[in-house]
Design a protein around this nucleic acid. Structure first.
Length: 473
RNA sequence: GACCAUAUAGCGCAGUUGGUUAGCGCGUCGGCCUGUCAAGCCGAAGGUCGCGGGUUCGAGCCCCGUUAUGGUCGCCA
C-alpha cells in the first residue's frame, strides 16, 4: 500500500531547478566540459578484497558495504563486503566518530596487515580514516549477514532488493550469469549465431490457453510463449544454426515449485541434421562443457554452500518413451494411461541415477498427441515422434526434437491439430520455399540453475520471479 | 483450476483440555568492554495474534466466512 506523502514531501520537479539554471555563462559550461578531459583517473583507485593478499604492507583505499560490526569499546571490527569478497577492518582509537549501521557504504583508507586473528584469510586492514559514501538506516527488515535459512522464501522474495545482497543469494546469480555465458560461448564456438526475436506476437505458437494477452494500440497482441517460429525462420534464412536467450511467458494456472509465469528460455535450432539424435548430441556436449566449466569455477563453493556435487556423466542415457513407461511401471508407478506422469519421470530419473550413474536422462519419442504440430513423426514407430525431453534430477529442463520440414506434411498437421493454415501463412511460407531438415530445443535457465544447486523451488533461482500470485518486486 | 496446510514483534518460531499482564532466539535502541569472528555482560523498546463475523462469563486457541502464503495434482521448461 502506498503511504500518503507528508506536506513537506509535496515538491515538484521545478523546485529542483534553481533560477540561475538559465543564466550559466560559457565559462561555467567550459569549466565542466574541460573536466571531462583533464580528470584525475587515479582519484577512484580502489583495492578490492580479493586483491588484498598481494598488497600486504601497503596503504590502500577500499570501498564497500558494512557487512557486520563488532564493537568492543576501544576497538571496532567491521566486516566489509565488495563485489569480490569480504575483509575485516579494525579501527582503534577514535577513527569512527559517526554512527554507522550495517549496509552503509563506506570508504576506508588503511594499512593491509597480516593478522592471524582475522577471520578473512588472516588479513585485515588497520583503518586510518573512514568516509560514508551512502548511509544506511538501522531497521533492516532482513539480516544480510545472518543465517540465510532463518528467512522464508516469500520473505526473501518480498525484500528481493535487499536479499540479493546476502552473499549466498548473490552467489546463485553469479553462477547463473556464468551458465548464460558458457551457453553462448559453446554455441558460438560451434558456428551458432545469437538472435533476438520479438516477444510481442499476434498469434500463439503452441496454441492453448496459457498465453498472456495485452493491449497493443488498438489491437490485441500476445506475449510469446516461445521463439519457436522465429528460430526456424532463421535456420531457413541461411544462418543454419541459431540460438536465443530470452524471456518467455506462460499464463499457466500452475502454482508449483517449478513453474514461473515468465522465465528465461535458452533456445537453439540447427539445420542439416540427420535426426533428433544430432540435436541431443549437440546438447549433451554443450551441457558437459557448461557443467565442467561451472564445476571448475564454483565446484568447491557449491559443495560448501549448497551441499551438492556437480556430477557430469560420461554419457547421458537416452531412453525411448515406451521404455521409460516400462521402467516406471516396473517401479510401481500406476495410473499413467499411456503417458508418463511426473511420478513416472521421477522413477525414470531414479533408474538413470542408480543404474546408469547419471543425473541426466533423455526420454525420446513422445507420442504425437503430446507434442506440438510441428514435431517430426518417427516413421519407424508410427504414432510417436522424433522429440525428446531432458530430465535432470527428476525435473524436465528441456524439450526438443526434430521438426517437420516438408511444407505439405506441416500444412496437413496444422489442420489435424485443429488449426487453420491461413493463419500460419508466414510460417508455412518458409517451408514452401525450401527448408533444411532441422530441429532444436528450449532449456529453462531457472530450472537448470535450481537443480544444479539443489534447490527445491525454482523461485530461488529467479532474481525477480513472476508467478500466479507475484508481480512485485 | 481442484485438494491439503499455514497465518502470533523487523526476521525465525513457541503458546498445554478455552482462563490473569501473549512468550523465546536473532535483530534494533541505550550502557560497559582493545581481538571480535554465532562476541560477551547489563538494561529497554517493539504485538489490533491476517481480516470479518459467531459460540462463550471469558477466544491466539473452538465454529463460519474471507484474504494472503506454502505445498500437492493437472500442465509444463
Amino acid at each position: 500500500m502506498q503511504k500518503e506523502l507528508k506536506q513537506d514531501e509535496n515538491i515538484s520537479i521545478d523546485d529542483l531547478i534553481p533560477e540561475t539554471a538559465s543564466r550559466y555563462t560559457q565559462e561555467d559550461i567550459k569549466k565542466v566540459s574541460n573536466s571531462y578531459k583533464n580528470r584525475d583517473k587515479n582519484v577512484n583507485n580502489r583495492t578490492l578484497c580479493v586483491n588484498l593478499a598481494k598488497n600486504i604492507g601497503k596503504k590502500v583505499i577500499i570501498k564497500g558495504s558494512v557487512h557486520k560490526i563488532n564493537s568492543l569499546g576501544g576497538i571496532e571490527f567491521f566486516a566489509l563486503r565488495d563485489r569480490s569478497g569480504m575483509t575485516q577492518i579494525v579501527f582503534e582509537g577514535s577513527v569512527v566518530t559517526q554512527k554507522i549501521c550495517c549496509e552503509a557504504i563506506i570508504e576506508v583508507e588503511g594499512l593491509i596487515t597480516k593478522e592471524e586473528r582475522s577471520p578473512y584469510d588472516n588479513i585485515e586492514i588497520k583503518g586510518q580514516s573512514l568516509k560514508i559514501l551512502g548511509s544506511a538506516a538501522s531497521d533492516l527488515p532482513i539480516a544480510i549477514n545472518g543465517n540465510y535459512n532463518n528467512i522464508n522464501l516469500p520473505t526473501l522474495l518480498d525484500y528481493r532488493g535487499l536479499s540479493v545482497r546476502i552473499p549466498k543469494v548473490s552467489k546463485v546469480f553469479k553462477i547463473q550469469s556464468e551458465i548464460l555465458r558458457l551457453y553462448g560461448e559453446y554455441l558460438r564456438k560451434n558456428d551458432f549465431s545469437e538472435i533476438k526475436t520479438s516477444k510481442i506476437i499476434s498469434t500463439g505458437t503452441e496454441g492453448g490457453a496459457n498465453i498472456f494477452e495485452l493491449k497493443y494500440f488498438d489491437r490485441v497482441a500476445y506475449l510469446a510463449q516461445s521463439p519457436q517460429f522465429y528460430k526456424q525462420t532463421m535456420v531457413g534464412s541461411g544462418f543454419e544454426r541459431v540460438f536465443e536467450v530470452g524471456p518467455v511467458f506462460r499464463a499457466e494456472m500452475s502454482n508449483t515449485v517449478r513453474h514461473l509465469s515468465e522465465y528465461t528460455s535458452m533456445d537453439l535450432e540447427m539445420g542439416f541434421i540427420k535426426d533428433e539424435q544430432d540435436i541431443i548430441d549437440m546438447q549433451e556436449n554443450l551441457l558437459k562443457y557448461m557443467f565442467t566449466e561451472i564445476k571448475k569455477l564454483y565446484g568447491d563453493e557449491i559443495k560448501e554452500e549448497f551441499g551438492v556435487d556437480i556430477v557430469i556423466p560420461e554419457v547421458f542415457p537416452r531412453i525411448h518413451f515406451l521404455e521409460a513407461l516400462d521402467i516406471a511401471y516396473k517401479k510401481g508407478v500406476k495410473d499413467m494411461d499411456g503417458d508418463i506422469s511426473p511420478e513416472g519421470e521421477k522413477a525414470v530419473c531414479d533408474y538413470a541415477d542408480k543404474e546408469l550413474g547419471s543425473p541426466f536422462v533423455y526420454i525420446v519419442g513422445y507420442p504425437i498427441k503430446k507434442r506440438p504440430m510441428y514435431t517430426m513423426p518417427d516413421e519407424r514407430l508410427p504414432g510417436y515422434t522424433r522429440s525428446f525431453d531432458l530430465l535432470y534430477k527428476g525435473l524436465e529442463i528441456t524439450t526438443g526434437g526434430q521438426r517437420i520440414n516438408d511444407y505439405e506434411t506441416l500444412r496437413k498437421n496444422i489442420i489435424a491439430f485443429g488449426g487453420n493454415p491461413n493463419s500460419f501463412k508466414t510460417y508455412l511460407d518458409i517451408f514452401k520455399y525450401g527448408m533444411p531438415p532441422h530441429g532444436g530445443l528450449g532449456m529453462g535457465l531457472e530450472r537448470v540453475t535450481m537443480k544444479m544447486l539443489g534447490f527445491n523451488n525454482v523461485r530461488e533461482a529467479s532474481l525477480f520471479p513472476r508467478d500466479i500470485g507475484r508481480i512485485t518486486p
